[in-house]
Design a protein around this nucleic acid. Structure first.
Length: 345
RNA sequence: GCAGAGAUGGCGGAGUGGUCAAACGCGGCGGACUGUAAAUCCGCUCCCUUCGGGGUACAUUGGUUCAAAUCCAAUUCUCUGCA
């Protein structure tokens, strides 16, 4: 895929946070029809680190991955590790400091250092550092999140252009993240101010599911309506198969979620043979079921193995089970994407 | 044969007079997961129930006591030493 075509058609990117889609080799990943992956700036900054990543020739060389790579900036970890108080850390106007509970080491992400790390990774599509928050926050917190996110995005762009020559020199794309929680006027403001700075893509940030379990469609629409039409829109963290279809209808073209691979590891598989489209492979009813997970699926797992076999592997903790379920779930998603792309012809 | 130790729910294993239907772990059954600290986490897991409770239970049988998985006796079985 030409990088300039990124987001012209629908694309689903599985999360290869630390340089692998869990349980899959790069070949197995490619065989699911995956064209792009998301890797994570903070996690790769911690291990192997910026200098080693440079020496290793970037993530594509390291993984032997020929497809597209998008790097998340570490903005989500500002939420999931610091704001959620999972790790000790501080968010401040200049960025965020993370303290790894494993090693006690401190990691600093600023708008500039996030870009530097994303360049070291050899990303095709960069993301500006943002101050991601949960959905149900007070307005004052959302305002702080928005103003920081805009400021950091502006600094990211400046650094990307001044140090690396920007999109023109590098051929890479720089996308930004729209915050604002569930305050529609803040979403609008954030989207408009980021548009004024100018980016190659606009990402919907924050949480995509409200407390009532529904997609935050109004907020997502506000971002579409207040950003340049011709630039790609990426719905970060979307979502369940039905969510992707809905959000695709709003104008988002790019998606990623950990659900597909995490569910696979946890035994929740996608199958059109089942009611609700979900098959919980650990359940006793599959112990003697010789059918494939999904009778219409063309993935390796469905071509070669039965529900009973996969049920067994998962029950006895054989790692091969994780590989087989991940291949299936990912292929299921890529087939949804393929069908969306066919429909839009 | 003699001397010790012990027998607890599907399994392992706490508990040694009342607050014990019995900790904890495993197994079993079900569920959750949405820019990954997640091969993780959360329920339920003797029988019946109108979910308030009720009924059987800690090798077996008998006894002591207001009250026993817990104390006593006998029986059966298991393990470890010594012959």
């Amino acid at each position: 895929m030409e990088i300039s075509d990124f987001g012209k058609k629908f694309v689903f990117m599985p999360d290869a946070t630390r340089g692998a889609v869990r349980a899959l080799t790069s070949k197995q990943l490619e065989d699911t029809g995956t064209e792009a992956i998301v890797t994570n700036t903070l996690h790769l900054l911690m291990t192997p680190g910026l200098e080693k990543m440079k020496k290793l020739g970037g993530i594509k060389n390291f993984m032997n991955w020929k497809g597209t790579v998008l790097t998340d900036s570490g903005g989500f970890q500002v939420f999931s590790l610091i704001h959620s108080k999972k790790w000790k850390g501080v968010v401040h106007d200049n960025g965020a400091t993370f303290k790894s509970p494993r090693t006690g080491d401190m990691y600093e992400l600023t708008p500039e250092s996030s870009i530097d790390m994303q360049m070291a990774i050899g990303s095709d599509v960069l993301v500006t550092l943002d101050d991601c928050r949960s959905t149900n926050i007070e307005r004052i917190e959302a305002e702080e999140s928005v103003s920081r996110t805009i400021d950091w995005a502006s600094r990211c762009k400046k650094h990307f252009e001044e140090k690396y020559g920007g999109t023109k020199e590098t051929g890479k794309l720089l996308s930004c993240v729209v915050q604002g929680a569930n305050f529609l006027d803040l979403r609008k403001k954030c989207a408009q101010e980021l548009s004024a700075i100018g980016f190659d893509g606009y990402n919907f940030g924050g949480f995509v599911i409200a407390d009532n379990g529904e997609l935050v469609l109004d907020e997502m629409r506000a971002v579409i309506e207040n950003t340049p039409k011709e630039k790609f829109k990426y719905a970060m963290g979307v979502g369940k198969p039905e969510d992707i279809k809905i959000v695709a209808g709003l104008g988002y073209k790019v998606f990623d979620t950990v659900l597909v691979t995490r569910n696979a590891r946890h035994g929740t598989l996608y199958s059109n043979d089942c009611e609700n489209g979900v098959l919980r492979i650990k359940n006793a009813e599959y112990s003697l079921d010789e059918r494939p997970i999904d009778s219409n699926c063309d993935c390796y797992t469905c071509q070669k193995h039965s529900r009973a076999y996969i049920h067994h592997l998962i029950k006895v903790d054989e790692v091969t089970g994780l590989t087989l379920t991940t291949i299936h779930n990912l292929r299921y998603y890529q087939r949804i994407i393929e069908s969306l792309n066919q429909q839009s012809y």
